[in-house]
Structure formats: C-alpha cells, structure tokens
Simulated scan of single mutants.
Amino acid sequence: MRGVMIFGKKGKLSPRYVGPYKILKRVGKVAYELELPKKLAAMHLVFHISLLMKCVGDPTSIVPSVEFAFSAYLHVLGT
C-alpha cells in the first residue's frame, strides 16, 4: 500500500496508533484478525502481534468523537 495515505500526513504529530478495535480471532501463532470500520476497508484485516498495542481501559468511558462542520472562513458551524 505504498503511497496510500490513510491516517493522514507523516510527521511528528501524526497518529502512531489508531483504534481500539475488537480482535475477531487468532490467525496462527503471531497474527490476529481485527474488526475494522468501513473507512479502513482498504487495509488488510490480519495484523502481526508486533503492530498491536494492548488497550487497558473501561469501555464505558470511551468518549465518542465529534465531527465539526466549518464554513469557508474556518468558523465552526453549530455544536
């Protein structure tokens, strides 16, 4: 997938990890199949264990992300 920018620009402040995502099943000794959202449909579903991070947290404390709409002058339209 060279040249495909899925997570945004590469640089100092670019996201290192995305998720958390649910593990569907273990594939072999060192690979796991993840449940990815539709916006990441171009990604392969199976990841090596070295690419995954453990997510320890309370699932009820996850704050949903909010999408903002901006006008042409970069003013936030509504809340």
Rank of each mutant, 00 (worst) to 15 (best):
H48W: 10
V18M: 09
P37Y: 05
G28L: 11
R26M: 14
K29W: 06
H75G: 01
D58F: 00
P20H: 04
F68M: 13
E67T: 13
L24V: 15
V66R: 15
A42R: 12
P20G: 00
G78C: 06
A69R: 14
S71N: 14
R16W: 12
G11K: 14
F7T: 13
A42I: 14
L51M: 15
L52M: 13
K10G: 01
G19L: 08
K29L: 15
G11C: 08
V18N: 02
K12L: 07
L40Y: 12
Y32Q: 12
P20C: 05
F70C: 02
G8C: 10
R2D: 00
A41C: 10
H44V: 06
A41W: 04
S65N: 09
F70M: 14
F70V: 06
S71I: 03
V63A: 06
A69P: 00
Y17I: 12
M5D: 11
L45M: 03
S14K: 08
G28W: 10
I49A: 09
V63I: 15
F68N: 08
T79G: 04
V4P: 03
E35P: 02
M1T: 11
D58C: 07
P20W: 06
A31C: 15
K38C: 01
L36I: 07
K9R: 10
L52G: 02
F7H: 11
E33A: 10
Y21M: 09
L40I: 08
S50K: 10
Y32F: 15
F7P: 01
L36Q: 06
K54R: 12
L36D: 02
K25C: 11
G57P: 07
S50Q: 05
D58P: 01
L36C: 01
H75T: 09
Y73H: 09
K12C: 04
D58K: 02
A31G: 06
L77R: 14
F70A: 01
K9L: 08
E67W: 03
G78V: 07
L36T: 01
T79L: 11
A72V: 05
E67D: 03
L77T: 09
P20R: 11
I23W: 08
I49C: 10
M1L: 12
A69T: 13
Y73S: 13
A72Y: 05
L52H: 06
L45D: 07
A69L: 12
F68V: 15
L77G: 00
P37F: 03
E35I: 02
E35Y: 05
L74I: 08
F68E: 09
P20F: 03
L40P: 02
R2W: 02
A42N: 08
L13N: 14
L24K: 15
G8R: 08
L77Q: 12
D58H: 04
L45G: 00
V4L: 13
H48A: 01
A72N: 07
P64Y: 04
V30I: 14
K54I: 11
V46T: 13
I6H: 02
I23Y: 04
G19A: 03
T60W: 06
L13F: 09
L40G: 00
T79R: 09
P59C: 03
H48T: 05
V46N: 04
I23M: 12
K10D: 05
Y21A: 03
P59K: 07
K9D: 09
C55V: 04
M5Q: 13
I23K: 13
L74E: 11
S14H: 10
T79K: 12
C55E: 03
V56D: 09
V46W: 04
K38E: 11
E67H: 10
A41I: 12
R2M: 01
M43T: 05
L34I: 12
